[in-house]
Design a protein around this nucleic acid. Structure first.
Lengths: 167, 167
DNA sequence: TCCAAAGTTCAAATTAGTTTGAACTTTGGA
DNA sequence: TCCAAAGTTCAAACTAATTTGAACTTTGGA
């Protein structure tokens, strides 16, 4: 047990632990790794911006995880760099507007899947063309149309969703 | 290589394989296991209702997986039992209305997390009460209120989402 | 009533996904 | 220019999640 701690303390206090836990569970639901929830959660209840080193020390995670977690959170638009610091490391603060968080998630995690799904359906349409049995082909075409309509409707709903969650 | 196949065939044909692949990817995005996508996908391009044995044979999966997959798909309202069959096994057909599928997913996979999240936040509110520093307490309370508002908005958006995807 | 077929259960095996850590690259200040 | 601190990369280690399969329970018909 260390006798001297730096002013931020290494261990999380009970409140911090609880909040981090909430975010860890939250990101799991979204299919994101625990480290993402830990980093974002710690930022969410911190009053000061934090650096990679803070995540490593206070969350007991490797530099590798912290680095990858920061990269993903940046790409999601869930954290932003804070400039004008004394030392040379990069500090981060959380984006706390739901609209922005949802927007980033849609852009990075949902849109790409919808897009790749659309191209797979195009492929399927050609495969279906070469079916011999016309009744089978009719059935398959109906199903593929339905699948396409699911994707189309999904794509249309996303911006509405984002708008509804905004403000 | 077997010389004689039963009339349904053991292997999937190329079209079936492609469709199953689309659904496997699809359910992965939703955080559901691959077997769910395989079963639902096969049902989706099948013109006849299928039984557990069909899933086992045509998808090369264990009875255990098929059984568990069927249970989950039923709980999601994504498949339904078809009655009036010659033999004594249970046959299934897919629900293909997006509204129903989305509704089941929300009910089974999203609502429970929102609910448990709400109760965790209540716990957090009590923890925050016991903070000594009033400035810290003020900050934490603001953040917890924000977290609560995220959940509230999420809960409100779900039925709208379902309605928008309906018909 | 009995039994074989159908379906379920769950611990162990497997597979998929995440984290680590050591080697590497980049960067800002002396 | 140089170098130590900062940050990145990615193969290997680890952890979490899914699937298997064998033992079990249930069920419908002879």
């Amino acid at each position: 047990m260390p006798e001297v701690l730096d002013k931020s303390g290494y261990e999380l206090d009970p409140l911090e632990r609880q909040v981090v836990g909430v975010f860890v569970d939250g990101v799991k639901v979204l299919g994101l790794p625990r480290s993402i929830g830990e980093i974002y959660g710690l930022l969410f209840i911190s009053q000061e911006a934090l650096s990679l080193d803070d995540f490593v020390q206070r969350l007991n995670m490797s530099k590798g995880s912290a680095s990858q977690g920061i990269r993903m959170l940046k790409s999601l638009g869930a954290i932003r760099e804070v400039n004008g610091n004394a030392d040379r490391r990069t500090y981060y603060e959380p984006a706390v507007e739901l609209k922005r968080l949802v927007g980033g998630f849609i852009r990075e995690q949902i849109r790409p899947h919808l897009d790749s799904g659309k191209s797979k359906i195009n492929l399927l349409n050609s495969t279906a063309e070469s079916l011999d049995d016309p009744l089978r082909r009719k059935f398959i075409n109906e199903r593929l149309e339905r699948l396409e309509s699911w994707m189309t409707r999904g794509g249309r709903v996303l911006p509405i969703l984002q708008r509804l969650l905004g403000q």
